[in-house]
């Protein structure tokens, strides 16, 4: 994508190359932020529909502009820093959360070759950045100098580290089938219609991945770090104004990212479900698949009650870890002894 823009701008000199990089970053980041604003709206609408309420319906047609109004409101509010807080880290934490939520999108391919960076280790990059996400929460919890925030941060740290393990094993299963860590290659292995998508051979581990993704993004039923019934709002309790907005945007950008990863790993990325639908550009299919993933996230939030903390830990370590380890061995055996291993990669 950077290269394409570079040649479009004339293709000469280091400065133009930098301009091309910045332009492609903006081309991903701006639509992403707008998508985040609308995804908050859709989340609330779906939640409301399940509970037979109307949801936001006042600002703009069908309430579509509700998120922008909320954003403006947060923007105009006062940033309050608690007296006992560690100022630098307190302000650094939401920025870190937001930045990390955005930079993972650098490797997501929206169409063939349509990513800012086409890394050979793309899937590891996503894993690395999502494992950094826990720092935003820990730092905010510690710097707030508040018991609720601190407890939320501790919970979140333990939770995210636990569920990353099973996400890692699920990724290994998919990688065995693709023979590469490159996201482009993983998608290209699923070319040829809905039946060749990874969701069919990997149906059981898709569930493990989805539930672990819920835990990794701190979504209900695993939203214990901010459980309002016991911790008020957990690590966010001392934050107001834009600092809170950055946490909020980062959270939703992460949910969209997990939906995108799900689309790439299990739902054939930018490929249409039926080959004759080729005339619709790939990124449209990618958007539809991300939207489907987000819909699943929103539905789970609407009808599942919150887990208790020890149950969460039990599920992560005693159920998902052995199960996903078993599936790694199972799929590796099938691929090696069944002769399905991809060659080259």
């Amino acid at each position: 994508m950077v290269e394409a823009l570079y040649t479009l701008f004339g293709g000469e000199g280091q400065f133009l190359y930098l301009v091309a990089i910045v332009a492609s970053v903006l081309a991903i980041a701006l639509p992403l932020l707008i998508a985040v604003a609308f995804s908050v709206y859709f989340d609330r609408k779906i939640w409301a529909a399940v509970q037979m309420r109307r949801g936001p319906n006042v600002v703009g047609p069908f309430g579509l502009l509700q998120s922008f109004a909320d954003g403006l409101k947060l923007f105009l509010k006062e940033t309050i820093i608690p007296a006992g807080a560690n100022k630098v880290i307190f302000l650094l934490a939401p920025m870190l959360t937001f930045t990390l939520a955005l930079i993972s999108w650098a490797v997501i391919p929206f169409d063939a070759g349509m990513a800012i960076a086409d890394l050979n280790v793309g899937i590891l990059y996503i894993l690395a950045i999502s494992s950094l996400g826990v720092y935003g929460i820990i730092m905010s919890g510690w710097a707030s100098n508040s018991r609720y925030a601190f407890l939320g941060a501790l919970r979140s740290a333990a939770q995210m580290v636990s569920y990353e393990v099973s996400i890692g094993f699920v990724l290994v299963c998919v990688l065995i089938s693709a023979g590469s860590l490159n996201l482009d290659v993983i998608v290209e292995r699923q070319a040829g219609g809905v039946l060749s998508w990874n969701i069919w051979p990997f149906f059981p581990i898709f569930f493990i991945f989805f539930i672990s993704a819920l835990a990794e993004t701190n979504r209900p039923p695993f939203d214990l770090p901010e459980a309002e019934a016991e911790l008020v709002a957990g690590y966010q309790v001392e934050y107001s104004s834009m600092a809170f907005a950055l946490f909020f945007l980062g959270e939703y950008a992460n949910i969209l990212l997990m939906s995108a990863v799900m689309a790439i790993l299990f739902f054939g990325g930018w490929y249409p479900p039926l080959p004759f639908l080729d005339f619709i550009p790939g990124f449209v299919w990618m958007f539809i698949k991300i939207g489907f993933g987000f819909f699943l996230f929103a539905m789970v939030k609407a009808f599942v009650p919150r887990y208790r903390y020890d149950q969460l830990m039990r599920l992560g370590w005693k159920v998902f870890l052995p199960l996903s380890l078993f599936f790694v061995i199972f799929y590796a055996a099938i691929y090696v002894y069944g002769g399905f291993l991809p060659t080259g990669g």
């Binding site: 590891l124 494992s131 950094l132 826990v134 990353e164």
Partner: peptide
């Protein structure tokens, strides 16, 4: 390095 040392 990032996944193991920084992340865990």
């Amino acid at each position: 390095l990032v996944v193991v040392y920084v992340g865990a």
